[in-house]
Each structure stands twice: as structure tokens, then as C-alpha cells.
Design a protein around this nucleic acid. Structure first.
Length: 441
RNA sequence: GACCCUAUCGUCCAGCGGUUAGGACACCGCCCUUUCACGGCGGUGACACGGGUUCGAAUCCCGUUAGGGUCGCCA
């Protein structure tokens, strides 16, 4: 932290963290980390009607889950607090009086409005480039209200005041604020402050180009948390919406993204959210992450589901063999459940196809005998024994493999069969084979 | 309606005056294979349109069209 760059994420507590907001936070965070600057979290809770307690928690949870830690803000403190707009009344009053005394304000219907200087306002946006706005016509650009008759403050005013007070050097926000920016610049000037550098990033839309709202698929960060995405995958995906390393790579470590990230490299056009690609990204991360990380991310889901896994030592080998098949962490409990109970369920269709065929149950009994007699118990030895048995008896491998898979797991799909039996252990494997042979006899 | 932003495969990106327009997701084949995945190979698929500028435009300029945003006593 040794540059003077100060950026912020300033969400309004709405009850959930929107992906668009998350990416705005991410780009601010990336810029702060890239420059060695400071990332600030400020809660814009001027609207008292909203439930700030729970709604604010959703913001903290989402940012923490994504790994976007802030340097100043709630729980962290800092020299520019408080970091809740609802607690900054005196500051707003001071700036309000400054504007009023200088003659920039007038009362209208009980509310206070800022008198626009009626000029051309130029903006050199770090993403969008040089833009000139003609604010000379009051018909098309009416004066903005900054304070309600009840004394409440309006976004445009408190946002600018806080950015001045908190020493923001760069304002990185959604493009939906681009048209508001000239008004903000007027406010900065009237307050005798130098406007920060602006960077308006493109919006995230639905696949069909429509605006993403709360109910749309993939819109709420909480949804990713519940379904069990790897946060690093979601972050990686979000980074690629509007930014790219320019060399056609997709999976990139966040450390490298921090190095490569810069504002002028951000796209100018809106991006559509593609859940398919996000899902692919997630499976890639799940597949390649360390077993330790997979364990760490899976555990909460396993505990919540109440899987009686016993000890971590018993759980880890099981997780190790299902990791490569897992698409979402929320699937983990179901994928591992049969390892931890002898009362596992049998898929009806699989039973019909593989067990209720002539000779299938006899095969299981014969295999159980062979396994019982075998010394070694590794995936390799288990496989060798199975194939040797099939060869000896004149069966096709498949004719033995499928009934065996269903006998030991109750399912037609699952982890590598031999590894599954290795982890299950000799005793339980043999017992399951025999029990199944009896059960469907 | 006014103003602002944007415009390359269905989607996300690369390209920044001369390329067989590249990669990824998705989709379709084939291969691998004990299931399901992973993986490998191949394929379908795009420069919105019209004018310029230039020896030469996806690349630069203008217009049109389309999409998005803003125009609140919401943030």
C-alpha cells in the first residue's frame, strides 16, 4: 500500500449483492491492488426505508466470499469514517451550508436544488475517453435536487461529498452513472474540489441483452454461494467480462490479473452474462484445485447436509475421488452419501438393467469370493482381480463391472469403480457385494 | 423525445490499415473409456448497413439502424 490511489465501492443495501455490483467492486479492488492503493467500502444507506441490517450483511458476505477485502470501511475503520452515509449528517450539513452560502442553492417546494452554471462540461473518462456534455439548456438538463423537504440527502450530493471527504482519486463505477457525471463535476467545482478521475465500466446484461434484475439467473452473488461455486472461479469469470489479458487466455490466477489489470484496457461495450461459460470456468477450478482446497470448500455443504462422515481422515479420500466429477459443491453430499451408510439406496432403473438379468447376482457372489481371498487392496489390485475373474469365467468386463458398480454404490454413475472400492475397503466391498446378491435374489 | 455510450461467430474476448479474421463457452461429429465426467482431434458459426478516406479497410471519418444508459424529492 504505497500509492496515493484511493478507490471505493459504494453500494446501497438492497438485500443482495448483484453481479454487476460485484464486478464494480472487483474492478475497484483490482485497481487498488494493481496500483498499491487503498480500497474503501462505503455503505450508501441514505434511504431509511430499506432494511439496512440484513441488507448490509449480504454485501459483506458477498464481498468476503469473493475475496474482495477492503482496507477502510465497516469493521476496518480508517481516517475518513464513518463509512455509513446514515452517520455522516454533520459532514453533509457542512457542505450543504458551504454551497448555500456561496449562492449555489435555492429552495423549491421545500427541497433544495443546486443551480447549474449552465456550461459545457468536459469529461476525460479513463474508459470511455473524452466526452463533452452540453448542460446549457435547463429544459433538457434540469437542476438537480440535493436535499428533500424532510432533510434527507440525495445521492448525487452525498456521493460527491463523500468522495471529496474520503479523498477518492478514481471513481470506477457502472456506465449507468455516465450521464450523471457532468452534474457531479459541477458539484465538485462549486465545492472548490478537484474532480477525481472517472472510469465508467460497461454493464452486465442478460444473455438476451435485457437488463439483469434480482430474479435473473446468475444475478445474485448469494446464489453462487448457495450452489457451491468456487469463489475464485466466479472472480475469474467476472474479470473476463469487459476486460481481457489480450492473449486469449481464460483461466488466469488472480495474482496475475492484478498485475495485468488496468483501466484503459477495459472494454467500452456492455457484456452479456453467460452462465454456461461461468459454469465451465467453475468446473475447471474445481477440477484443478488442491484436494485441501476442495475439502475446505466442500465441508460446509457436507456438514449442512448432515452426512455422518466420521472423521476428516475418513472423508478426505472420498472427496479425492469425487473431486474430478463435481460441478457444484452443493452436489458433494449426494455424491458421497453412500460411502457413509450401509443403507444406501438403489437406483431402480440401474437395478433393472444390471442386476435383474440372468447370472448377474451369481457374478457378484463369485467376485466377492475372489476379493475375500485376495491379499492386496488397491485400485490396481482390485481392477486386476476383477478382470482376471471375468476372463477366467468367460465374461465380458462390462458384464461384471456394471453390476459391481451398482452393488457397491447403488448407482449407475459415480467415481472410478476401482478407486471407489479401494476407498470403501475390502470388508465393506465384499459385504456390499454379498448383501446385494441376497437382496435382489 | 433529448442527451450519452456501444456495435467482430449464439455468448465472452483477440484484432488496432495488408490475417486463410484467432481463442474460449455452447453446439455437432470422431477418439479415449468401467459409468459419468475430464481430455484429445475435427466441424458449423461473425466483421449490422450505407457512404467516404486510402493502392488497400473489421480496423480511420460521416450517416443510418440496432442495443444499452441517463434525463427522480431512488441509489
Amino acid at each position: 500500500m504505497n500509492s496515493n490511489v484511493r478507490v471505493r465501492f459504494a453500494p446501497s443495501p438492497t438485500g443482495y449483492l448483484h453481479v454487476g455490483g460485484a464486478r464494480t467492486a472487483l474492478f475497484n479492488w483490482l485497481y487498488a491492488r494493481h496500483t498499491g492503493g487503498t480500497f474503501i467500502l462505503r455503505i450508501e444507506d441514505t434511504d431509511k426505508a430499506r432494511n439496512t441490517a440484513e441488507a448490509t450483511q449480504a454485501i459483506y458476505d458477498g464481498l468476503k466470499w469473493l475475496g474482495l477485502g477492503w482496507d477502510e470501511g465497516p469493521f476496518k475503520g480508517g481516517d475518513c469514517g464513518p463509512y455509513f452515509q446514515s452517520e455522516r449528517e454533520e459532514i453533509y450539513l457542512r457542505y450543504f451550508n458551504q454551497l448555500k452560502d456561496a449562492g449555489h442553492l435555492y429552495e423549491h417546494g421545500g427541497a433544495w436544488r443546486f443551480r447549474s452554471p449552465r456550461e459545457m462540461v468536459a469529461l476525460d473518462d479513463l474508459v470511455c475517453g473524452h466526452i463533452e456534455f452540453d448542460l446549457t439548456n435547463p429544459e433538457t438538463h434540469p437542476d438537480i435536487t440535493i436535499r428533500r423537504p424532510d432533510g434527507g440527502w440525495i445521492f448525487h450530493f452525498v456521493n460527491v461529498v463523500d468522495d471529496i471527504e474520503m479523498g477518492m482519486t478514481h471513481v470506477i463505477r457502472g456506465e449507468d452513472h455516465l450521464s450523471n457525471t457532468p452534474k457531479h463535476i459541477e458539484l465538485y467545482k462549486a465545492l472548490g474540489a478537484k474532480p477525481p478521475q472517472f472510469a465508467h465500466i460497461p454493464l452486465i446484461l442478460n444473455r438476451d441483452g435485457s437488463k439483469m434484475s434480482k430474479r435473473d439467473q446468475g444475478a445474485a452473488i448469494g446464489g453462487y454461494m448457495e450452489l457451491g461455486y468456487a469463489p475464485e472461479a466466479v472472480v475469474n469469470y467476472l474479470c473476463l467480462l469487459g476486460w481481457s489479458p489480450k492473449d486469449n487466455r481464460e483461466i488466469i490466477d488472480i495474482k496475475e490479473i492484478i498485475e495485468l489489470f488496468d483501466l484503459p484496457k477495459i472494454n467500452h461495450s456492455n457484456a452479456a452474462f453467460d452462465l454456461d461459460k461461468c459454469n465451465w470456468m467453475n468446473t475447471q477450478y474445481l477440477l484443478h484445485m488442491s484436494p485441501e482446497r476442495f475439502f475446505e470448500l466442500s465441508l460446509p455443504f457436507i456438514q449442512k447436509a448432515g452426512i455422518p462422515y466420521g472423521t476428516e481422515a475418513a472423508l478426505k479420500p472420498v472427496l479425492a475421488i469425487i473431486q474430478e466429477k463435481t460441478k457444484l459443491l452443493s452436489e458433494v453430499p449426494d455424491r458421497i452419501s453412500f460411502f457413509f451408510t450401509e443403507d444406501y439406496a438403489f437406483e431402480e432403473e440401474a437395478v433393472e438393467k444390471a442386476l435383474k438379468v440372468p447370472g448377474a447376482l451369481e457374478k457378484l457372489t463369485i467376485l466377492a469370493d475372489r476379493y475375500e481371498a485376495s491379499e492386496a487392496w488397491t485400485a490396481e489390485s482390485v481392477e486386476a482381480t476383477l478382470k482376471a475373474t471375468a476372463a477366467e469365467m468367460g465374461w465380458k468386463n462390462k458384464e461384471l463391472i456394471h453390476p459391481t458398480r451398482i452393488a457397491v454404490s447403488g448407482r449407475s454413475v459415480g467415481p472410478s469403480l476401482y478407486h471407489m472400492m479401494e476407498v470403501l475397503g475390502k470388508e465393506r466391498t465384499v459385504a456390499r457385494l454379498r448383501k446385494t446378491a441376497e437382496k435382489f435374489a
